[in-house]
């Protein structure tokens, strides 16, 4: 299963993004970032399984997240903004 990870510069930004997703009927809480995404130490991200992902989800998070990553088949990939 492919999973998207959106990282944020603060818990507040992550909570704001979670609120946007909730308005779209997607209930996901921020989580602590996994090690490959912790570029400056501890951080917060939202993990979105591929089944819940869509271009409109991506659009609703625009301007809120710092970086977007994908994880699948044991590999991490960083997407461009």
């Amino acid at each position: 299963m492919y999973v998207y990870y959106y990282t944020f510069r603060s818990m507040t930004a992550a909570m704001t993004a979670a609120g946007k997703l909730k308005n779209r009927g997607i209930n996901l809480r921020p989580i602590r970032s996994p090690e490959p995404l912790r570029k400056r130490g501890c951080g917060f991200c939202i993990r979105i399984p591929e089944a819940q992902f869509s271009p409109s989800v991506q659009e609703s998070l625009r301007g809120l997240y710092e970086k977007r990553y994908g994880y699948g088949n044991g590999e991490w990939r960083e997407f461009s903004l």
């Binding site: 603060s10 818990m11 930004a13 400056r40 130490g41 501890c42 951080g43």
Partner: peptide, 17 residues
């Protein structure tokens, strides 16, 4: 401590942290 960006010694540049 702010809970985030903990590997850097400067305070985060973003609000509210």
């Amino acid at each position: 401590g702010t809970g985030g960006q903990s590997a850097q010694q400067q305070m985060p540049s973003v609000l509210p942290d």
